[in-house]
Design a protein around this nucleic acid. Structure first.
Lengths: 347, 347
DNA sequence: CTGAAAGCGCTAACAG
DNA sequence: CTGTTAGCGCTTTCAG
């Protein structure tokens, strides 16, 4: 029931504690036959070193555990980020502790503290809103922190983010290039960094093209497909409806697809963030493809660089979100007044 | 740079080690003003207890960390399972260590051992193939283990699995009820437990209905959408093609949708496992909806029951996969010989 | 109410 | 090549 210790191994193999420790740590200077006896005892007792105890004593002690605080582990986007982080951690023979903050700053802090109390070697955080200066002590204590998906403590800490504004700008410009001028913007809550950035890109694209922003076409808020569909439906029911929609994330994109299908009109659509079925919808959806895997990988690599002693200035790594052309974004502007034919761009 | 210890707190507040420890552990019997002084020192030094050290000494020592070894953290299905586990763990004030085995039994074992060396309080495992008897020692040492999604060490250890055979049987019966007799089966690798179980359900449904199994209509193997599409296309190109397809997981379902769309024929489709866009496809896809959240929640609850001392017989918990009717599965059998019209069930 | 001493399981430092 | 002693940061035991 109770686990064998290094003492038990020493007793069984008839050597001292230290010799067992040497064998376990593959330190040189143990006679082969002694080593064998120790190994036999280890096997017989099924001994497993207590890493926590070993760590406590070691000079260069390290739990070899990285902490990840994300918004929601169950969210496929963040789970892709987590998967990439885990993969890099694995290469460095580290383990990953994960937790979800649920966009709650207080919970985020609790989790970070729980991680630190367990002496994770570094933290990767998808920051919820709020102030992150509580991390300064931890950073001062030598725990590297990397923010991912959204920046935090800018200029003080490394961050890896998607090119939200640039991507949105490219996407909206793409719609403008198809002749659209009335382009709606559908965004998540205006509290969320990425939503705001994407809106910024939208505005820039309009400005670049000399198109006046019509606030009637801008909607922030819907957080799920149903609400997004509702919002898109309202936009499309305006007296002067948009001829194209730019959707700020994949739930909004899906809602938009549904609302557009309902009208039977040929409304162009570009969405931010790729999703599994985008190419199988009708019409296939043109998107700005975020790369969660690159986000996670870069964050983890940055973290391990810091752990390896890289003391350079805090970095801001940006990951592109290239336009993936599939059909919905290439529906050209047409006067539309009476374009009611149910012209569905099949494939 | 180096973290303060309980000694530093004791020195600053002018009390002994033990008094600090008492305050930290909220043990009774500390004068309020003494307590306050200690708390002040803790705040000033930004002291954070080293949980590993505390654990080492504690009688009822517990890392309050649960380990999860899944097939792939980045897979949305398993991330939903992980999310539910994390949520239950949180309620019990535990943290979650996660890792991906990538279906590799050796890696799974390595990970389990790394977790055990860190003394996780319990393990939840999506077992890769292979022998799991290596876990017996760990179990004997008092670490509860729960298998999820696939059973392992049946009868010896708790498992939480989906009703794969029952669900598949219901799905295929549903197709039979629409008049279909030539129903193809598309499954993942026959090495995978769930694929085999679902195929068992398929066979049972045919048997129940007195329909002879045609092995030409059974395909195991395709592991991604492209291969699935290819396999489905081949099935549909048979001299006597199926009039319905039962797809064993969501990638296979999506591949089937594509292949069916290509033919322009009205082929019914029921898929195992729900997916985000199923209702937005054309036609909307009827599925057996697995419940990864329930899988994870039940596994975690079972684990915490065991940790709470439940010493009952190993349990096998099954989670239903109800039929979600959306359209594709309700396409009735029609002689089809010349049913070539491009009849797309548009809402 | 408080503190000194011992010790969790292991490794570091120093002897032999 | 091997062993002894100390001590990581904390809690326990037992004594004030």
């Amino acid at each position: 029931m109770s686990r064998p210790t290094i003492r038990d191994v020493a007793a069984l193999s008839g050597v001292s504690l230290k010799t067992v420790s040497r064998v376990l740590n593959e330190e040189p200077g143990v006679r082969p036959d002694t080593m064998q006896r120790v190994l036999d005892a280890v096997a017989e007792l099924r001994f497993q070193r207590n890493e926590a105890a070993a760590n406590l004593r070691r000079r260069n002690n390290s739990t070899r555990i990285v902490g990840l605080v994300t918004e929601d582990v169950a969210n496929p986007f963040y789970s892709a980020v987590a998967g990439a982080i885990e993969s890099v951690a694995r290469q460095h023979r580290h383990l990953l502790l994960v937790a979800s903050s649920g966009e709650n700053p207080a919970r985020e802090r609790e989790l970070v503290e729980a991680f630190c109390a367990r002496r994770v070697v570094g933290l990767i955080i998808v920051p919820a809103g709020g102030d992150h200066s509580y991390l300064e002590d931890e950073i001062a204590a030598g725990t590297p922190v990397v923010f991912v998906d959204r920046p935090g403590l800018p200029g003080r800490v490394d961050s890896v983010v998607t090119e939200n504004a640039e991507g949105a700008r490219a996407g909206v410009t793409h719609l403008l290039n198809q002749g659209h001028a009335r382009i709606a913007f559908l965004g998540d809550s205006a509290e969320i960094y990425t939503a705001v950035e994407r809106h910024r890109g939208y505005r820039q694209a309009l400005e670049d093209a000399g198109v006046t922003l019509d606030y009637a076409l801008v909607r922030f808020g819907p957080h799920d497909v149903a609400l997004a569909e509702q919002a898109a439906r309202e936009l499309l029911a305006l007296p002067e409806p948009p001829t194209a929609i730019f959707a700020g994330n994949n739930r909004l994109t899906i809602g938009s697809v549904r609302a557009i299908q309902e009208t039977g009109r040929r409304v162009a659509l570009v969405g931010f963030d790729d999703f599994e079925m985008a190419e199988y919808l009708d019409p296939p959806v043109t998107v700005l493809a975020q790369d969660p895997e690159a986000l996670g990988r870069n964050a983890a690599e940055l973290l391990f660089d810091r752990l390896a002693g890289d003391g350079g200035e805090p970095r801001l790594v940006t990951i592109g979100a290239p336009l993936v052309v599939r059909g919905s974004g290439e529906i050209a502007y047409s006067d539309g007044g009476t374009a009611r034919r149910r012209a569905v761009a099949k494939r």
